[in-house]
């Protein structure tokens, strides 16, 4: 009976994952490998293709600032380039904020989560969402680039690297992580359980009542362990390997928040989405 409970928990979380996250790993890998009846994604590999591809992106326009254009053509081009980079960054923020809502809905579906102290629910989400978003981003990535805009666009890693500092440095750690994480070959049902484990981390700073969180996590951990054994019978120590990724994730999030702080200091036109601002304030 206990194993049956753990299996039904895995099933419930997988169903919630499919309901809340629009682009699954199965779909993303089909797009990346060209095994889908949908159109191939539009490829963004330079500034020109970024401008062309912008029409695909749900881009929230930011107001242009009146700056005195210097006479040289190259500086006008460089102004335009800065504007396009910033606009792209803003569309990434909008998508991230939407994704935070999806993660929140997923968290609410974890049995027992809504019975936790409301302050603890907020703390768990605050600390987990960026980790979850990075995990969710991994299936969209390969060593050459990443799907964006719900899989309609493929942006090359080289192009992202070519953006000016610190934009150009922001995605590299995520690619490095993703390439290694994807080698574990988790599927969507494994991912659903792993995300729940991340959300239910009892060691987040400022939690008021750790015990019920740890109890919930322990149950999901048992379910994940059993599920991985059944779903990947030939993959040795997969459970331990998956859990080890949680340490890498924390470092990546801490570096990411640092990048955002640098951006806030250096970019006059930067405004951070209020939800992301709320999450990143006093986070590490």
């Amino acid at each position: 009976p206990e194993a049956a409970d753990l299996r039904s928990l895995a099933k419930l979380l997988y169903e919630s994952y499919l309901k809340n996250f629009p682009l699954t790993k199965a779909k993303a890998r089909a797009i990346l490998s060209g095994k889908t009846s949908d159109n191939a994604p539009f490829v963004i590999h330079d500034m020109k293709s970024l401008l062309e591809g912008e029409q695909f992106i749900n881009c929230r326009q930011i107001p242009r600032q009146d700056h005195h254009r210097r006479p040289s053509v190259s500086s006008v081009q460089s102004d335009l380039q800065r504007e396009v980079e910033l606009r792209f960054f803003h569309s990434c923020q909008s998508r991230s904020a939407e994704a935070v809502s999806e993660v929140t809905e997923f968290a609410k579906s974890i049995p027992g989560f809504l019975n936790l102290d409301l302050n603890d629910q907020v703390t768990l989400l605050k600390y987990a969402v960026i980790e979850v978003l990075i995990i969710m981003m991994s299936p969209l990535m390969n060593k050459d680039g990443t799907l964006i805009s719900y899989g309609q666009i493929f942006m090359t890693r080289e192009f992202l690297k070519s953006l000016r500092k610190p934009f150009g440095e922001m995605m590299e750690p995520k690619f490095e992580f993703s390439v290694k994480f994807n080698m574990l070959e988790l599927d969507d049902s494994d991912m659903a359980l792993f995300l729940a484990v991340i959300i239910l981390s009892g060691d987040r700073p400022g939690l008021l009542n750790v015990k019920p969180i740890e109890d919930l996590q322990e149950n999901v951990l048992h379910s994940l362990e059993l599920h991985l054994k059944m779903n990947h019978p030939d993959s040795l120590h997969l459970f331990a390997k998956v859990l080890q990724k949680m340490t890498d994730l924390r470092q990546i999030v801490s570096d990411h928040v640092h990048f955002i702080h640098v951006l806030k200091e250096s970019e006059i036109n930067m405004c951070l989405h209020p939800l992301l601002q709320e999450i990143m304030k006093d986070l590490y």
Binding site: L118, N119, V122, L275, E278
Partner: peptide, 19 residues
């Protein structure tokens, strides 16, 4: 929760599926 008003609201909103 005071400093996390949006997260708080997202948590308290009932999802469309819940009616």
């Amino acid at each position: 929760t005071e400093r996390h008003k949006i997260l708080h609201r997202l948590l308290q909103d009932s999802s469309p599926a819940d009616g």
